[in-house]
Amino acid sequence: MVYENSRGIRGWWEIKGKNFEKLLFILHRLSGVVVGLYFILHIFETSTILNGEEDWKSLMEFLKNPFAHTGLLIVAFLSVFHALNGIRLIFAEQGLLIGKMRRQGYPIVSFSLTGIQRKMGWFVILLTFILALYAFYHLFIVSLGVRF
């Protein structure tokens, strides 16, 4: 009697000791789910305008608080990451920017994990943080008037 040793969905979230692309893989899935859920909420949110201007304005006032804006900041961070990493994947999954076939020699290094796509991955993270900082500026300093 054999034992089925499948990791199942658990394997998607294992990060300890894994490569950088796995981290991006996890973040891409996570950001996709979160942004997808946000879109559903966003439809409900914007549909209040159908009830008239008063309803819309009161909802906007209700949502103008640090908790809601923290949520928006997380959504902004994840959606920017998802979009930029998506561009990296479009190239990588066409077989572009992942190096060129060559004979392996010691020490063995998988060049698809060391090519331009990996640099792009780091650039995606950097750009995401910069744009999230911009979102923070608008959500907290401009909109809520937070002063440090």
Binding site: A92, E93, M101, S110
Partner: peptide
């Protein structure tokens, strides 16, 4: 989905992730 773990663990540097992305192309 190009998680790249296959290429990371390959003891012979076969780089399956590279091959699969080329096939998609």
């Amino acid at each position: 989905h190009f998680a790249g773990e296959c290429s990371e663990v390959c003891p012979k540097g076969v780089d399956p992730a590279y091959s699969i992305q080329q096939l998609k192309g």
